[in-house]
Write a protein that binds this DNA or RNA. Structure first.
Lengths: 342, 342
DNA sequence: GTTTTTTGCTAAAACGATTTAGGAGTGACA
DNA sequence: TGTCACTCCTAAATCGTTTTAGCAAAAAAC
């Protein structure tokens, strides 16, 4: 019925050599193992002829390596992560790795469960956005000495590889940009989180505001239902009528925020300065177009894979800690409203 | 050093039973194989105690099933696909399957290459958006009798499982909606494609326009560089000054289109009727908010996994062909502009 | 003309599970 | 007492690789 895929054994049988020899040759160890050039060619030709490809399961079972890279993010449907996934996917497949993705929902238990599953699978490498309390699990992975890179955030106390951006500086500059354009009362909407990326963003904002001797106005949203979040934002805007600008610390906060403004403060949309962290096409299309601190997606993705590939080669044991720069994309929403005249 | 994970063999050795017995018991075949209740309990308890989990690679090698589901879409960074991925992921992990994702870029060669890789991996199930010319590869999969579901589009000539939406009817209704709101010169911006989903959308539009005895104004963009596409749209809008509405046949066309309008026809943004296929948060946030034909994401995702799980059980061989209804979400961009007053 | 080295290859174990075929012991029945 | 059936369990093959250890013949060295 189904013409079974040829195995190394079939090759061996057909060519009257041993399985061992075939394996050596196919793994390029022919010369090293002193297999004659003649036999090498015979095997290679035949393998090509019957279009042989190794059974990766067997290979993995034997070697303990699965050629699978896990890409764990908070939520794969977030455009930021989805686009990164795309970039990683391309390199990975090119190099013969497969990518398993999963969303940990920034939840520790979830993270742990997923990692458990993957450990059983002998996953080859991990690219992870760790949830807040995942330090223990990350340490466990570290102990196992399996290739792992954190990104977006990290644990300063741990000696892990990571790729992040300079959040503090980026927010600092973006806030200064707002100030430079004449905004005095800048609100900062963020989530209540002690994780590095959020803390740093807040720091950058605070620093800029303090330097300018303006008042700091921060709304820290608890991790709650989006609708509740919208309510809280609305209250915040109501309670701070003197606001003339808002800085949203993540793209989904911006999304929520724009909705709130649209529904309850339509006038402010074109009046306020608006700045967001994490850019995407829609902020560009929005009216007014939204100024954004854009993470260098391509660069992050490439860097992640560059490091991953090096780790997979397993040679040296240097720790890679990369901090990239974000880019400020100035658009309508942060231009001085007095000078502007569309 | 590394305390090796316990295997079935360790359990057997520790309890003085055979590997076979352990395997039977752990697979729930204890009673069937007449293993005594006592031994069954002993094994189960011990397995739990040492926290045994089977090595899936070995399992897969032996059984030829890998518990991996491939989710192949055009481009995982498209919000539509990313959100679907999220939904599928949740069910899959819950049921003990892993999800490998990949983007075929709607390219046949790419599709073929990826499928080749997966065949070698003994992937358990496929959820696929096929590229236009992938019929051959899909047929090959069909022959292999491996669980497979197409979605978003399908090959009418093939007896495959699929989940799609009623594209024709959805566009028909949405176009009628525009007509009902007073728009007379409705442009339809789509991509040049013979695939079912695009043909059906075009059909729906054409039917509605024809019934109303209006002129059909279709722009079929070739698969090209986005910038070229924008140029072509611009020309189209220029060449059809009498347009009073546009219907974009996919979300990325809308994205491009809004950008073009924003830059070159800013006045039209609030004047024209605008309709898009595929909804997302940003169309809601946009000013004006964009009316959309929304695919029932949850429903599609759940249906896909429901079918997949049934196929994986491998019992009956009925072909599942599901056509779901899309939902028209009326927003500002399609309301009669004369009556409207924000 | 032995001994040693090199060449060219292979047997067999291992990875960790599943599954087929069968074996030892007990009890029942004639 | 011999046979049959039943209970409870196990040996060994198998999936497709990798890898260790080693063997036979030819070549080199003495």
């Amino acid at each position: 019925m189904k013409p079974k895929r040829p195995s190394i054994k079939d090759i061996a049988a057909n060519l009257n050599v041993s399985v061992t020899t075939v394996s050596f040759v196919l793994n390029g160890k022919g010369p090293e193992m002193r297999i004659s050039e003649e036999v090498i060619q015979k095997i290679l030709n035949y393998a090509k002829e019957i279009n042989y490809t190794p059974n990766q399961l067997a290979q993995s079972l034997r070697t303990g390596k699965s050629n699978v890279i896990v890409f764990m993010v908070e939520d794969i449907s977030n455009p930021f992560f989805a686009r990164l996934a795309r970039i990683i996917e391309v390199t990975a497949y090119k190099k013969g790795y497969k990518v398993i993705f999963c969303s940990n929902e920034n939840d520790d238990r979830h993270t742990e469960e997923l990692l458990q599953v993957f450990r059983d699978q002998k996953v080859t490498g991990y690219i992870i956005i760790p949830s807040a309390g995942a330090k223990k699990q990350i340490m466990a992975l570290l102990e196992e000495d399996v290739p792992m890179i954190l990104f977006d955030r990290y644990f300063p106390e741990l000696e892990t590889n990571y790729v992040v951006i300079d959040n503090e500086n980026a927010t600092y500059k973006a806030t200064k940009h707002l100030i430079g354009n004449g905004y005095r009362n800048i609100g900062f909407v963020t989530i209540a989180s002690k994780q590095t990326q959020m803390m740093d963003r807040l720091k950058g904002y605070s620093k800029a505001v303090k330097e300018a001797k303006f008042q700091s106005r921060v709304l820290e949203l608890p991790f709650v239902d989006p609708l509740v979040g919208e309510g809280l934002m609305r209250n915040f805007f109501d309670a701070n009528p003197e606001l003339d600008a808002v800085f949203f610390a993540t793209n989904y906060l911006t999304q929520r925020g724009l909705l709130v403004m649209r529904e309850h403060f339509p006038g402010k949309l074109n009046e306020w300065g608006i700045m967001t962290f994490d850019d995407n096409e829609f902020f560009h299309i929005h009216t007014p177009s939204i100024s954004a601190v854009a993470q260098p997606l391509e660069e992050i993705g490439n860097k992640l894979m560059e490091i991953m590939l090096e780790l997979l080669k397993g040679e040296k044991k240097t720790v890679h800690q990369v901090v990239l720069k974000a880019e400020l994309r100035e658009r309508d929403s942060s231009r001085s409203k007095h000078a502007s005249s569309i």
